[in-house]
Simulated scan of single mutants.
Amino acid sequence: MTRGRTRAAVLGSPIAHSLSPVLHRAAYAELGLTGHTYERFEVDEAGLPAFLDGLGPGWAGLSLTMPLKRAVIPLLDRVSPTAAAVEAVNTVVFTEDGQRHGDNTDIPGLVAALRERDVAEVPSAAVLGAGATASSALAALARVCPGTVTAYVRSAARAEEMRGWGDRLGVRVRTAPWERAAEALREPLVIATTPAGATDALAARVPERPGTLFDVLYEPWPTPLARAWQAAGGRLLGGLDLLVHQAVLQVEQMTGRAPAPLAAMREAGEAALGG
C-alpha cells in the first residue's frame, strides 16, 4: 500500500450489522497500524458513483456488501479474473495513480476456510440455494471438488442459472428441487447459502455420520441445522469462518502487510457476536 493511504471502509445497504469494522480494526491493532481507520457507510446502488468520486487520496480500499458487488464493476479500472468469473466485487483497492482495482476475496476465503479444517478435496458436494453467494460457492468448489455439485433450488429459473454458472466456472452442476434438499445432507460437503430459517426443517434429517457443513450465516448462530450437524459429529464451518478469511485477504491488499492476523481477527469477531 502507498504511504499515506490509511483510510478504508465497508459500504452497503443495510450496513449497520456489518462485522467488517470489528475485524479490520482488530487487524490494524495487532499489526501496529495506529494511524489507519476503518469505517462503515450506508451506500446504495444509486449513491455509489458519487461516493467513489468523492474519495480523496488518503483512501486505501473498500469492502463491499450487498447490493453493491455487481453495481461497482462498471465504475472500476480493472477487475481481477476471480471477481470477473462470478461478476461480483467485494474488494476495491486504490492505487497510487488513482486507479480502482476490484477483486473478490469471498472465493479464496471460502477455500482457505475449508483448508483450515482439512477439507482440501471432496469427490462431490451440494449447494443449498442459488443466490449471489451460491455462485461464489461454485467458484470455490471448482478448486476443491473435481466431481459433481448438486444445487438444490426453488425454481426452474434458478436451476438454469446455476447450471449456467457451472458452465462458466468449469464445475459439473446438476440441479434438484428444494423439496429434495434433505438428500444434500448425505454429500461429503454441503454449502448452505440460504437466508436465516430456510434450512431449519432439515435439522431433523441430518444423517448419522455427516461430512462437512459450511453454513455461510453468522447471525443467528448456530442455526438449527448447524447445531444438529455438530451434535451428530460432523465437521462444521460457519459464516464467521468465511468472513474472517475473506477479511484477512482484504487487510493484506489494503495495507500491504502480510500475513494478516487471522487469530486476532477471529477472536474479535467471536467477541462481537457473543456480545
Rank of each mutant, 00 (worst) to 15 (best):
S155P: 06
A156W: 08
A156Q: 13
A157K: 05
A157F: 00
R158P: 03
E160H: 05
M162P: 01
M162L: 13
R163D: 05
R163L: 10
G164D: 09
G166K: 03
D167H: 11
D167I: 10
L169Q: 10
L169W: 04
L169I: 09
G170D: 07
V171D: 02
V171W: 08
R172P: 06
R172S: 14
V173P: 05
R174D: 15
R174I: 12
T175A: 10
T175W: 02
P177R: 06
W178V: 05
E179H: 05
E179F: 02
E179W: 08
R180G: 14
R180H: 15
A181C: 09
A181Y: 10
A182C: 06
E183D: 15
A184M: 09
A184F: 09
R186A: 15
E187V: 01
P188W: 12
I191P: 11
T193H: 10
T194Y: 02
A196P: 07
A196H: 12
G197Y: 13
G197E: 11
A198I: 07
T199M: 13
D200L: 06
A201N: 12
L202N: 09
L202K: 12
A203K: 10
A204V: 06
V206S: 01
E208I: 11
E208K: 11
P210A: 04
G211R: 04
G211C: 09
G211W: 04
T212A: 08
T212S: 08
L213D: 07
F214L: 09
F214R: 01
D215M: 12
L217P: 00
E219R: 15
P220Q: 09
P220W: 08
P220H: 04
P222K: 03
T223W: 02
P224S: 12
P224M: 11
P224E: 14
A226P: 00
R227L: 15
W229E: 00
W229L: 06
Q230I: 00
A231I: 10
A232P: 05
A232L: 07
L236T: 10
L237H: 03
G238R: 03
G238T: 06
L240S: 11
D241T: 00
D241Q: 00
L242Y: 00
L243I: 00
V244K: 10
H245C: 05
L249R: 13
Q250K: 02
E252Y: 04
Q253E: 09
M254A: 01
M254Y: 00
